[in-house]
């Protein structure tokens, strides 16, 4: 079972995760009427920028983060922003039934917008496959929140100088996630391992992201 301290930490991280999300005025625009490829490009970049801003706010709330070396803070955020963004998107696209009809329609519109944004098909397909594979895990909001925090606090990112300090922040969260998985998915003893596997998969998107942006800009 989770100790009281772990329960409090989980609650705190979940609250921040729920609080710091892309503002409605940005998502609203994204879900309004269809527009051309150029407008799609601008809207999606605006959304990505907004995502990074709220991600930083969420990260600042992670216990111990603000005490890290300032350049290490930037290295951690730079290294994880793309992965955190894919995780958020996965949460949107993997929503399972019962699905409100309006929500279903919105995620279809969003998928359509991404598919017609000028991003090459070879990058789009693995992305939606990933969303599907995340959906199969039927993750609770707590798992998304912890997984995002764990991704941000990865000690092995490039340019991180004080890796042990980052490790000390990440480890307690891994413990909580492992326990939470056992409690929440008693029928799947491999659930925690599967989540960590998705993190590895996320890293490949990080690598492809620069190529993807390049192809997008050229298109």
């Amino acid at each position: 079972e989770l100790t009281q301290e772990q329960q409090d930490l989980l609650r705190y991280i979940l609250d921040s995760f729920i609080k710091y999300r892309i503002p409605q005025e940005v998502t609203k625009k994204l879900l309004q009427e269809r527009c051309n490829a150029e407008e799609n490009f601008l809207l999606l970049t605006e959304t990505a920028t907004s995502h990074v801003q709220v991600l930083v706010e969420f990260t600042k709330k992670l216990p111990g983060f603000q005490a890290l070396d300032h350049e290490d803070q930037i290295a951690l955020l730079k290294g994880s922003a793309v992965e955190a963004m894919f995780l958020r998107s996965a949460q949107i696209f993997s929503k399972k039934i019962p699905h409100e009809q309006s929500e279903q329609k919105q995620s279809e519109l969003l998928e359509d917008r991404i598919r017609h944004s000028g991003i090459a098909e070879e990058y789009i397909t693995p992305m939606f496959n990933f969303y599907r594979s995340i959906g199969e895990l039927k993750m609770a909001q707590e798992e998304y929140a912890l997984l995002t925090a764990i991704t941000i606090l990865s000690p092995d990112r490039s340019y991180v100088k004080h890796r042990e300090a980052v490790e000390r922040l990440q480890e307690p969260l891994l413990d909580i996630l492992q326990k939470y998985c056992k409690l929440n998915h008693p029928d799947d003893p491999q659930h925690f391992a599967r989540l960590l596997g998705r993190l590895t998969e996320l890293r490949t998107f990080n690598h492809h992201h620069a190529d993807m942006l390049m192809s997008w800009r050229i298109n």
Partner: peptide, 21 residues
């Protein structure tokens, strides 16, 4: 516009609490 800023610029500004420039 923000969309012309690099990722690191956006992160640095957000860490300092500056959103709008």
């Amino acid at each position: 516009p923000a969309s012309n800023l690099g990722l690191e610029d956006i992160i640095r500004k957000a860490l300092m609490g500056k959103y709008d420039d």
